[in-house]
Simulated scan of single mutants.
Amino acid sequence: MPDGHAPRARREPAEDGTGLGDAEAGLTVGRTAELVGVSVRTLHHWDALGLVCPSARTWAGYRLYGRADVARLQQVLVYRELGMSLERIGDLLDAPEADVAEQLRSQHDLLADRIARLQAMKSAVEQMMEVETMEKKLTPEQQAEVLGSNWNPEWHYEAEERWGATDEWAEAEGRKAQMGRSDWEQVKQEAEALEADLAAAKRRGVEPGSEEASALAERHRESIGQWFEVSRAKHVLIARGYTEDPRFREHYDTREAGLAAWLREVIEAEARAHGVDPETAEWE
């Protein structure tokens, strides 16, 4: 076949023009996309990857998805919701020893865990709403007053525009909503102490991967972890911004020349020591 797929069984299209024949004919790409809640473009992409391929075609060559195809699509959607890569999903679904019942149990457990996390986030947002009515939450401008001249309140709005729809943003905002001025002053003191220690270690020639550098990398990861859960893979991706974003680079390099690049090396070395390849790290 021109598209690289094995020949499909031919089905006669329905007279109503939907592309459906008898009950076994299957669903057109458009109807399937509507049914499972994804775009037609996504279905074409997954077909091209060999992840979920329509099992039949009409006499005119239109793709048709059967019951088994739709069931596989639903499995893909569950795994995608859990943050798995398409490659990993394909490996799971195509494993020769795959046990369907076991896969369903696993999906059920993973979804239960995600529901529990979402419930916790929902509670955090509700707390944030409650605190908001008490006017306890500091505005970005008030936060800047506490954090000092190194903090620009515009960064908050820029980050909200970019990350506002993510779980991490909701979790961080839920925590910030419960913080008063004294909490923010403590955040400032701890951040300044950490950056001072980082700069001192850089000046002393501490090597990335050393015991001292690893301890500093962990302190740095924990400092971000006060806002949301930070895996070592996430830490690596965040650290890229320290050298790629001129504002971050200037912030660190003002403390000590070359500190931004050194800190990124320290974080990447710590990640490698725990089995994370910085070159292939993913936000998970």
Rank of each mutant, 00 (worst) to 15 (best):
V78H: 10
E173L: 04
G174F: 00
R175L: 06
E97N: 12
N152Y: 01
D113R: 10
R117P: 00
L77C: 01
E135F: 08
P153I: 03
L147P: 00
L111G: 06
V76Q: 07
T166Q: 02
P140A: 02
L82V: 08
E173A: 04
V131Q: 13
L104I: 10
R114A: 05
M179F: 06
Q75L: 08
K137G: 12
R88V: 08
V70E: 09
K136I: 10
L92H: 09
E145F: 00
Q143I: 15
Y79S: 08
N150F: 12
W155A: 07
E145G: 00
E145W: 01
V146C: 06
M121K: 12
S106H: 14
L104H: 12
G164M: 03
S85T: 14
E141M: 05
L73E: 01
R72T: 04
K176L: 15
D94H: 07
D69T: 01
Q75W: 07
K137R: 14
V100Q: 14
R114E: 11
E158N: 07
A120Q: 12
P140W: 01
L118T: 09
A101R: 14
L86H: 10
S123I: 05
Y79N: 07
H156N: 11
A170H: 11
T133C: 04
P140C: 05
E145P: 01
R117K: 09
L82N: 12
K176R: 14
A112D: 15
A98Y: 12
Q103Y: 07
T166D: 04
R181M: 02
L138N: 00
I115R: 13
G90T: 02
H156W: 15
R181T: 06
P140T: 05
Q74M: 11
W169R: 04
A172R: 03
Y79E: 11
G164C: 02
E154L: 05
A116H: 06
R114Q: 12
Q103C: 06
L82S: 10
H156G: 09
A98K: 12
A177P: 00
E97Y: 11
A101Y: 09
G148A: 00
N150R: 15
A159V: 10
G83E: 04
E132P: 00
T133L: 08
E81N: 12
Q107H: 08
M134P: 02
A116S: 07
G83R: 00
V146K: 01
A98H: 15
A124Y: 02
K176V: 14
A98D: 13
R175C: 03
D91C: 02
E126R: 02
L92N: 04
D167F: 14
E160V: 06
L111V: 12
A101V: 13
A101I: 09
D91I: 04
L73T: 00
P96A: 00
D183G: 08
L138W: 04
Q74E: 15
M129Q: 05
Q127K: 11
A165Y: 11
M129Y: 01
R72S: 01
V146W: 03
G174A: 03
A159L: 13
L82I: 06
R117A: 09
E161K: 12
L104R: 13
A170P: 07
Q143A: 13
Y79M: 08
Q127P: 01
E173R: 10
G83D: 02
H156I: 09
M121Y: 07
L110V: 07
E130G: 13
Q74P: 06
S149V: 15
K136M: 13
R88Y: 02
L118W: 09
A159K: 10
L93G: 04
S106V: 13
K137S: 15
S149N: 14
G83M: 01
E158R: 12
H108P: 05
S123V: 11
